[in-house]
Nucleic acid binder design. Sequence first.
DNA 1: CAGCAGCGGATAGTGCTGCTATCCGCAACG
DNA 2: CGTTGCGGATAGCAGCACTATCCGCTGCTG
Lengths: 218, 218
Amino acid sequence: MRVGELSRRSGVPIPTIKYYLREGLLAPGVAVASNQADYGEEHLRRLLLVRALIDVGGVSVAGAREVVGALTAYADDPLELLGVAQSSVAPRHQPDRATPEWLAARGRVTELVAERGWLVEAWSPEMDQVADALAAGGSLGVPELSEKLGEYADTAASLAAVEVGMVLARPDPAARMELVVLGTVLGEALFSALRMLAHQHESKRQLELGKPGPGIAQ
Amino acid sequence: MRVGELSRRSGVPIPTIKYYLREGLLAPGVAVASNQADYGEEHLRRLLLVRALIDVGGVSVAGAREVVGALTAYADDPLELLGVAQSSVAPRHQPDRATPEWLAARGRVTELVAERGWLVEAWSPEMDQVADALAAGGSLGVPELSEKLGEYADTAASLAAVEVGMVLARPDPAARMELVVLGTVLGEALFSALRMLAHQHESKRQLELGKPGPGIAQ
DNA sequence: CAGCAGCGGATAGTGCTGCTATCCGCAACG
DNA sequence: CGTTGCGGATAGCAGCACTATCCGCTGCTG
């Protein structure tokens, strides 16, 4: 197929496809003449993957390029691929990490990981991100996040068990590698939205409990 | 205090503080002369809150303005405030929602919410976001997300129960309202990073299980 | 075989975001 | 009384994710 059909079938405008080609998010088609190229189903699929990363996962174009690159570069190393997928959804900004409060929070994270025997590298950027959230809470006088850290970790662990099991259940290695990426990125978006809905529900529920009796306003 | 001290104590550069003032993220100081103004502790606190939203939570400047606005506008309506806080962390992009696949996914979400008796508005943007993730997975031939939807929802519910309990445990109403915001935004960042760490751990653990025997490579 | 839509490739431009820089006249402090 | 810093205003900038335009060519249509 040529670019017009690719555009029609994916819903992505032609100039955007050309942009993705330039940026290396999409492999060039097979040149069939000086100014004609041919794209296959794998191009369509790759394009849909890129759009899912960008539109649903909120990944940047540069991040998406790294992810699709890693998908071929680490075709048989799920842990490396996982690392790239995880860093692609990392926040774009980051706070000042030179304060003593931050270092204390960071120490608390190292401790948590050690306590649980989690097999993660000591320099994981995600550990810094946990410290960021803890330190921000601390500087605003919100110790609750730090206090509930264990419960957050428990919940994360049980979700991760489900998700990793889901990925490893895939027999085909290539499809499994794609699921590493999609599980990381789409799973994040999915869970985040469900957490919001659950917050709405729980808030209403617990607020009602707090004010018993008939004639609850609104 | 004047802007220099505010800058020193918060770590935010003076031009950025001026920008936040212009953008309405920070209330103007009390004018004490034609070109001198005075800021208090509450300005410092607000500034730290704004930076936490932006740097840790990844909220946009416009989103942060809405959140701090809601904090005063809905000082006694936690549910309204929660809605604003939630929409501030919503993804900036969104996919095409006009396809039949998306509508089917959306139906599945309505069903899930109904089954569980979750008290959420039927038009919640978060429900659309769940459908976005499901539909993206579907179009890429990944039914797993949809299959595990119930487990995702269970996990989200148990996390939400902890978090809402944490917020409602605060006796002071003003501090509680701030915690609604911080719980939503920082809680998201915190959990997301922990989920990544748990993925690393679980992946290593389950991969080791899969290849038993001595001399496991690396 | 003429004509015209569409193609691939290249270059330039756009709109938005989140700051950053500069300038001004004035206040405060040593 | 001079230096430093302030507040307020305006302008500028870098990065991102596209979007528009142009060119010569291809290949299908009639």
